[in-house]
Design a protein around this nucleic acid. Structure first.
Lengths: 194, 194, 194, 194
DNA sequence: CATGAATGAGGCTTCATTCAT
DNA sequence: TATGAATGAAGCCTCATTCAT
């Protein structure tokens, strides 16, 4: 049960972190964006990193909850993946930049540095992958999907959805391409052999 | 024709940047890794950022050269993509960490921050995407590939190849999965419908 | 309305700048002299140079105000010059070193270097010369003074007053010589011809 | 008997020191201006300061020699001062900037800092003042000049001549004013009382 | 003698964090 | 709780000086 202030700070921090990245973001930036004094931030967070971890944690938790919910629905694995893909794609293509905060890229960012962040985050990332993998495994079991390493499938799934984020830099009208992209995940880039 | 020292510094810098990331890397770290004095670095590079740009530039140039070479071969678009995928996949799964320096992630890292880096790099990134897109366009033309936005196709291609990098964190035996992953790009995760 | 701290820093900076000069003065020196932490200085000044500019500005403003006041008094140009000379002479011979911060020498110091300082200061220096020149022009008009270039007259006036500063290095009892020196400015070093 | 190289370095150093001042001048600047390698400079001078001292020394020696020569001529003190004034004035108004290297200002520059420079220079400065003072004393003795402290007279004399240097910043056509300025030294700024 | 690549001490400045109010 | 002035550790970069060639 977070206080209003804490929520306000997190919101502000997310905005700034997305815009500038972790290191270039100054506590002052966050304080200003949140409309609180710098000192106030330290009443709610022990340090800069913990704000970041907190944000990542929130997002991952939400995604995990979402995946759990979808995972439990009485629909086919394919339908589950479609639903998830749509949501991810829309988030990624809408929010721009947000991804740098939420997705797989963070694994990289945290390599070797910010042990705390990595430790605290790794577990949730794994959980997320596992939930996706579970759906894929289910799909494989029901012959809906090819037999592949489910985790690898999960990663590919995430990366393809994630593509929508980068696409903005090179292409216009990304959102409209959702179905086509999803189609590649499911059916490949090759046309159906007659 | 770079001097020995410059080469030595670049090598060292790459190692450190990959290990720690741009911001946490200290000039001292690079100097120490290169076995030179701090000041020496500034004989060859104007500042920390320019070392990074230089590295990125080198790698991108190599990738571009490679794509150009493949692009000119007298083989089908599909064969070109296969060759490229194999090489990228192997690089990504071998070198670990290296990717954080070379791939699409950098687009993200450089968003908003480090204008110079972005400017200097954006062009080469675009070129790289364009070369891939050209191959895809060619494939579409010859009905080898579905009709999709070629740049989007290029991005998806890169992201799938890139998956191999992240995969190490969650899966063992990534390298062995190359063909299966490539297969997903070409034919999708769905099994061939009867 | 400057804060206490800012005032304290300026006071300290003046002391150190006078003692050591601009370049050899370290921010640490100023911080120590002011009894604040190094970082604190940057809460009030953007950089070392701006402290210097600020000091110069203050002093020049005071001198300008003084010249304006005298300039408006209902007394002869000669009387104005006498008053001004007395004040300058006393300042210069009292405070020692202070001059290096305040007087014409700075024109020199700032030539070619530290554009910002020069730009910000040049205007006030000119203003000061102009105010003196105005008095001299007035004196010429009323036949109290010889017809000379008023600005040149102003400069000579300042330089002679300034002599008292250097004099300490070579002579004792400088202060007692004020009237004699002033006399040279007004009547020259030659004895009255019969 | 200085070598060519040494002479070349000194010439270059003088140019640069005058343009940029002591501290902002880099050894590289001097080397480049002299057309020699940086290391070469250290074959002839122990350090940056000693170049400066050497320059100052040269100039002062020349001035001293000149004053000695004039001092020994069989002419009145007044004539001697006129000759000296003319020479100084021309130097000062010609070379611009040079003064910062040669004249009284250096006393200031060396306050507290650069002990070596001060020590090595003080003596020559004194000698220079003494030679001028001697002429003034002589003038006083012969009733050509008012009875004032000869050293103070010497300083005033130098400062007035020096005015021509600063004047460039505020006035055009400085050189043409030599006689008028000299006149002020001899007869003051007040018109001859009827 | 001459070179200029290499060194590394030291300066300025930033910014996460603290703490008195 | 909230503030924001103050702190000072730490990083980037410069440049006088050295030294192997």
């Amino acid at each position: 049960m977070k206080s209003d202030k804490e929520e306000k700070i997190l919101k502000a921090a997310e905005k700034v972190f997305i815009k500038k990245g972790f290191f270039p973001t100054r506590i002052d930036d966050i304080a200003e964006a949140a409309g609180v004094a710098k000192g106030t931030i330290y009443l709610y967070f022990s340090d800069k990193q913990s704000i970041y971890v907190s944000l990542l944690d929130n997002r991952l938790r939400k995604m995990i909850d979402f995946l759990k919910k979808i995972g439990n629905e009485k629909i086919t694995a394919t339908e589950k993946l479609e639903k998830i893909f749509n949501v991810l794609f829309d988030i990624f293509s809408d929010v721009k930049g947000m991804i740098s905060l939420v997705t797989i890229e963070n694994i990289n960012l945290t390599t070797e540095i910010m042990k705390e962040l990595r430790v605290k985050t790794k577990h949730k990332f794994s959980q997320l992958i596992d939930l996706l993998a579970k759906i894929i495994r289910e799909g494989i079991k029901h012959k809906e999907l090819k037999s592949i390493n489910p985790k690898m499938g999960a990663l590919i799934f995430l990366n393809i959805a994630h593509t929508s984020f980068q696409a903005h830099m090179f292409i216009s009208g990304v959102k409209e391409q959702r179905e086509k992209i999803k189609d590649i995940f499911f059916y490949g880039i090759k046309p159906k052999s007659k």
